[in-house]
């Protein structure tokens, strides 16, 4: 074991000794943020990037091109990637006054591609297990293969999270909450995988968590019953608290918005922090190169130990965050379905 570590250390040191001065924050934000191409690795001094399609509607109409056409200062049909400023690392065009203008941009970015990949994976996984149940008489047989792996997880979420928290009419919400759980879990787990199909910071992106939180917001408020709305608009409090100045209503409305907002930020911040921690730890190896082989070597060992620990922690967090998001969504939905005397 020790021998292995030494070999690994010298290998890493020999690799990193050639490294130039590195910009940690650039690496960090480059990995955490979104990009137009999917950067896989660096091989012999060349970046290996999978080009992804860009779809942009600028002032001169729609543009479809691959991300390899753009970037590193290159311009394509008047579009280029801003180096810095407000639209840093985004496709921009130059407006009539010379200022940068952000066009309508629905490019398939790294995060979108990762989302598509994980979604296809999720759909395939669930449909494959569902297919087993269609083809077999589940009443007489125990599930096999994917179905056997998925069933306990699905039933755990269905029984412990959804049934207990939503209440009697949980069946209506179960598919949504199950989808949310597995969507978040799969994307969290893929985010931990450091190489190609994974590694994107999908659930640590606020746009993704925002859509998820909005879906829960819709599920809570659109299907909320009369009692729920009465509690918000005309709660059982002394009159001076709700009329003529609607203090309680304002507080309730804040609560209404705070719930999905907390969902959004919790998932986003947890996953983002996890990615940042691991990337930061790995960067320590490269940062300490200039401090000599002894410090670099020992730091490498420490960092790797911490990295293993953090990865295990992230596995836990991946599950916990999916669990918490689903559970809180179920609780909020359950609160909106409570009856008068429930």
């Amino acid at each position: 074991m020790r021998k292995l570590l030494v070999i690994l250390m010298t290998f890493i040191s020999s690799l990193t000794l050639k490294a130039e001065e590195i910009n940690v924050s650039e690496i960090l934000f480059g990995h955490i943020g979104d990009s137009y191409g999917w950067h896989i690795t660096e091989w012999n001094g060349r970046h290996v990037i999978i080009p992804l399609p860009c779809i942009v509607k600028s002032s001169s109409g729609w543009h479809f091109f691959m991300s390899s056409r753009i970037g590193h200062g290159r311009e394509y049909e008047g579009l280029f990637i801003a180096e810095d400023g407000r639209y840093a690392d985004k496709i921009v065009e130059r407006g009539p006054d010379g200022e940068l203008v952000r066009p309508f941009d629905i490019s398939i970015t790294k995060n979108v591609a990762s989302l598509m990949f994980s979604s296809i994976l999720l759909v395939v996984l669930v449909l494959l297990s569902a297919r087993w149940y269609r083809r077999h008489e589940a009443v007489d047989e125990a599930p096999e293969g994917i179905a056997a792996a998925m069933e306990p997880l699905i039933m755990m979420v269905n029984d412990d999270l959804i049934k207990d928290n939503v209440g009697p009419d949980y069946r209506k919400y179960a598919p949504y909450l199950l989808t949310v759980f597995f969507f978040i879990l799969l994307n969290n787990l893929l985010g931990i995988v450091p190489f190609f199909p994974g590694g994107a910071n999908v659930t640590g992106n606020i746009a993704v968590t925002m859509v998820l939180a909005l879906c829960t917001f819709v599920a809570v408020n659109v299907f909320g019953n009369r009692h729920y709305w009465k509690e918000i608009l005309w709660p059982d409090v002394p009159m001076f608290l709700k009329f003529p100045i609607p203090i309680m209503q304002i507080i309730e409305l804040f609560g209404l918005i705070a719930k999905p907002f907390s969902l959004m930020v919790r998932l986003f911040a947890n996953i983002l922090a996890g990615h940042a921690m691991i990337l930061g730890l790995v960067s320590v190896i490269f940062v300490t190169v200039n401090l000599g082989p002894v410090i670099n070597g020992s730091m490498t060992v420490v960092t790797m130990l911490f990295g293993v620990f953090m990865d295990c922690l992230e596995l836990l967090v991946a599950f916990i965050q999916a669990y918490v998001f689903t559970m809180l969504s179920a609780v909020f939905i359950g609160m909106s379905r409570q009856s008068e005397h429930g």
């Binding site: 297990s129 569902a130 269609r134 039933m155 598919p175 949504y176 199950l178 989808t179």
Partner: peptide, 14 residues
Amino acid sequence: VFLILAKFGFPVIT
């Protein structure tokens, strides 16, 4: 994803 899974996925299993 939700529509596919809600129609053909989870309800079948549960």
